Simulated scan of single mutants.
Amino acid sequence: MGDSQTWAAAPGAAERARSVLATAWSCAVTAEGGREEFVGAHSVSDDGRLLLRLPDDSALLTAAICAPRGEPSAVLEFADVAPVPVRHRIRARLWLAGWFTPEDDHLAFHATRVVLRRPSGAAVVAVDAFTAAAPDPLSEAEARLLTHLADAHPDAVERLTRLIDPGSLHGAVRVRPLAVDRHGLTLRIERARTHGDVRLPFHTPADGVAQLTERVQRLLARASGSGCPRALQGQRADGDR
């Protein structure tokens, strides 16, 4: 398991849950004692409803039509996977319990319970808050942004380690960008057998990529005035898992 983490100025549970839903590329559905996994089948309508378009031969279609309306008949699971290769890449899991109704060429899911599990623990999110929340404004661009930072600017990541408490870097062999949202940037510190995360909050939230660029540049400017980068004990950890 990883070390304890710092989650300063982080998104709330409802916003984080909506971000997971918006960016997940697959979902697993458990209904009527069976489990199916779908890729690219879900979307979110303008009014916040979750819609699934499934193959005609899906057992879930029959289960949804026959299930009593108003009773929990399915559990949907979504995983939030870090776009940059790191140890333990799943950053959060989202579970939605509820029931389906057929609508035209898709199924509409009506959530009755929302549970978000993050490294800091699991949280039950009020359904109304979940429906009303919007995804983080950087969520759609996050994978591209983090991959670019890790691959094209490793020197910038190294410079940001100057902002990390030296004790948090004890035994570190690699530091990688793990997540970014409008509130801050999270770095994954990998050691030989363990890992921990450190969050670098922005001075104010970033509502778009242009503002994010300014926020990161401001962090780098702070880091440039904080002395030398922290020395790591090796070039990489024991591989990605």
Rank of each mutant, 00 (worst) to 15 (best):
T204E: 11
L187H: 01
L200E: 04
H183C: 01
T186Y: 01
V209N: 05
E190M: 07
L187W: 00
F202N: 03
F202Y: 12
G184Q: 01
R193V: 09
G208I: 08
L187M: 11
T204K: 06
L200T: 01
Q217F: 04
A206D: 03
G196Q: 12
R215W: 04
D207Q: 13
L212F: 04
R199Q: 10
L185R: 03
A206E: 02
L187P: 02
R199N: 11
H203S: 15
R193I: 07
Q217A: 15
Q217W: 00
A210Y: 02
L185V: 02
V198Y: 11
R188H: 05
D207M: 13
A206K: 09
T194G: 01
G208T: 08
Q217K: 11
A192I: 13
G208M: 13
V209G: 06
R193N: 11
R191G: 13
E214S: 13
G184R: 01
P201E: 00
P201F: 03
T204I: 10
A192Q: 07
P201S: 02
T194P: 03
A210D: 12
L212I: 02
R193F: 14
P205M: 06
E190P: 01
Q211T: 12
R215M: 07
L187V: 03
D197S: 13
R215G: 12
Q217N: 15
V198K: 07
H203L: 10
H195F: 15
R193D: 10
Q217T: 14
P201K: 06
D207A: 15
F202Q: 04
Q211C: 05
A210H: 11
L200S: 12
T194V: 07
G208N: 15
R215L: 09
Q217E: 15
R188M: 05
V209I: 13
D207S: 15
V216W: 02
R191P: 06
G196K: 10
P201A: 05
R191Y: 07
G196L: 11
D197K: 10
T186M: 02
D207H: 14
A210P: 07
P205I: 11
T204H: 11
T194R: 15
I189K: 01
R193T: 10
T194E: 12
V198H: 14
L187I: 06
V209T: 12
V209W: 05
D197L: 09
D207I: 03
H195N: 12
V216H: 06
T213M: 01
L185G: 04
V209Y: 07
D207T: 09
T213L: 08
T186W: 00
A192H: 12
Q211W: 07
Q217G: 15
R188C: 15
D207P: 08
E214A: 15
P205F: 06
H183Q: 04
L212S: 08
L212G: 05
E214N: 10
V216Q: 09
T204P: 00
D197A: 08
F202M: 05
A206F: 09
R215V: 11
V209F: 09
T186E: 08
